[in-house]
């Protein structure tokens, strides 16, 4: 599967421009991580790729065919988990998935999964084919998201995490060629998050998976391509290694008291609750902007981790992590 996004812009009727002249090329097999702060345009991009919205300008091609013409074939091969979705509370998990499987045409189309994997824990990872029946497909999806115990439970009785897993299950139905997952691990406990991370990784072995998340850990270990967006534009597209490399020499640690002795500006040091958000109050040190990304209280004082275009002398360079690199990229855009 190949998706080519050419100069796509999207402006909502209220005048908000969500995407600005965005171009991108995606090809299976691949697990693409989509990162960016709130309002970066990630969800809009996913809505465009699922044919839920039409771009204001530009073209999206699916296997060389413009999306309006390829809409039906795209939807037949698409598994979509939006960020905000509803379920039919009156149905059980199994009934809801059967409902969705029917809507997706899985009963008549049949789906492909390996006979050996049917017995295994996660059948979605492999797609060596034999015919799989509607019911089997539903059961496979239930098993993949670990909801066997709740299969007969009404959806209204499920917890937030179980509802999220039901949403993931409907996206996985029929082993679609293209999976769009918008914040799939929201509401899941750490164990489940790791489990799903691995599931998506296996699924991406022979298909295209687009994974949007705020959780760097989710993409760090599994994505082979990263796209960082902000303000409707792509800031970076490449491998995680390339992103980390771009931050090399721009990450440092220092003692807060040393920083205080080395600059004249007032101390606006503050650490946001969400580590993905760069603090809005950068520390100005001799004409440079230092963005604090972490602040740890120790017995010897406060130890800070920061990113900057040029590190001040009191900062000791550190090996960047993916999170540092991401924050460095975003902070550069903020200061520009």
């Amino acid at each position: 599967m190949e998706i080519n996004i050419k100069n796509v812009s999207m402006t909502y009727p209220n005048g908000k421009q969500a995407l600005k002249n965005l171009s991108l090329w995606l090809r299976s097999p691949s697990l693409v991580g989509l990162l960016g702060p709130n309002g970066a345009g990630k969800s809009t991009l996913m809505k465009l790729l699922s044919a839920a919205l039409l771009p204001t300008s530009g073209v999206i091609e699916i296997n060389g065919q413009p999306l309006p013409q390829a809409e039906k074939s795209l939807k037949a091969r698409l598994g979509y988990l939006p960020q905000d979705f509803g379920l039919f509370d009156e149905l059980t998990v199994e009934q809801f998935l059967e409902y969705m499987a029917t809507l997706k045409g899985i009963s008549s189309r049949g789906s492909t999964s390996s006979p050996s994997s049917a017995a295994s824990h996660n059948t979605f990872a492999s797609r060596h084919s034999t015919m799989s029946h509607h019911t089997t497909t539903v059961k496979d999806a239930i098993r993949a998201v670990n909801l066997e115990k709740n299969a007969k439970s009404r959806i209204r009785t499920l917890s937030g995490g179980q509802r999220q897993r039901t949403g993931i299950a409907q996206a996985l139905l029929g082993s679609p060629d293209f999976l769009i997952l918008d914040e799939p691990t929201v509401g899941l406990d750490p164990e489940e998050r790791i489990r799903f991370r691995n599931l998506f990784s296996r699924a991406a072995q022979d298909r295209l998976v687009l994974l949007s998340t705020h959780i760097i850990e989710d993409v760090q270990s599994v994505c082979n391509q990263l796209i960082v967006m902000n303000h409707g534009k792509i800031l970076f597209s490449g491998t995680p290694e390339e992103l980390i490399q771009s931050a090399s020499g721009h990450v440092g640690v220092f003692w807060e008291k040393e920083a205080q002795n080395n600059h004249t500006a007032p101390r606006p040091l503050c650490i946001t609750e969400q580590p993905l958000h760069v603090t809005n109050q950068p520390l100005h040190v001799t004409n440079q902007t230092l963005h604090i990304t972490a602040r740890i209280n120790t017995a010897n004082g406060v130890r800070c981790r920061a990113v900057a275009d040029t590190l001040p002398p009191f900062a000791q360079p550190e090996e960047p992590s993916l999170e540092d690199a991401y924050l460095y990229l975003i902070s550069r855009e903020v200061t520009q």
């Binding site: 699922s50 044919a51 839920a52 039906k72 074939s73 939807k75 037949a76 698409l78 979509y80 939006p82 905000d84 979705f85 509803g86 379920l87 039919f88 509370d89 969705m100 029917t102 809507l103 997706k104 045409g105 949403g167 409907q170």
Partner: peptide, 21 residues
């Protein structure tokens, strides 16, 4: 209902004919 409209995000992504649905 608002719940049904939120579920429509999922059903709309399926290839089933909207008119048939």
């Amino acid at each position: 209902s608002s719940a049904a409209r939120r579920a429509a995000v999922l059903t709309d992504a399926a290839p089933f004919s909207p008119r048939g649905y």
